[in-house]
């Protein structure tokens, strides 16, 4: 039997299977690995490590990409 893990992705709780990698998570979220950055427990991952890094219970994953912005952008609060 495969165990389920609880992780946090972009601040939200999420379940994933034990043994799954960061690459698996990205595919599950339908995120193409091009032009995203992934931080695993505050460590920025190399793209080539996405398939090598296994997720563990309690891991905090941040997935970031580019959005429209001048300054202080993204939330509509202000740009330059």
């Amino acid at each position: 039997m495969v165990d389920a893990l609880q992780i946090q992705v972009n601040g939200q709780p999420r379940d994933c299977w034990s043994g799954s990698t960061v690459g698996d998570l990205l595919r599950e979220l339908e995120i193409t690995t091009e032009r995203v950055a992934v931080e695993l427990n505050l460590e920025i991952l190399d793209r080539k490590d996405f398939e090598l890094r296994n997720l563990k219970q309690g891991d905090r994953v941040e997935i970031l990409s580019f959005i429209g912005g001048g300054s202080l952008a993204g939330d509509g609060k202000g740009t330059n």
């Binding site: 992705v9 939200q12 995120i31 997935i63 580019f66 959005i67």
Partner: peptide, 11 residues
């Protein structure tokens, strides 16, 4: 062109 870096909308 300048862009900002933010969390991807996963939902």
């Amino acid at each position: 062109v300048t862009v900002a870096v933010r969390r991807v909308n996963i939902t």
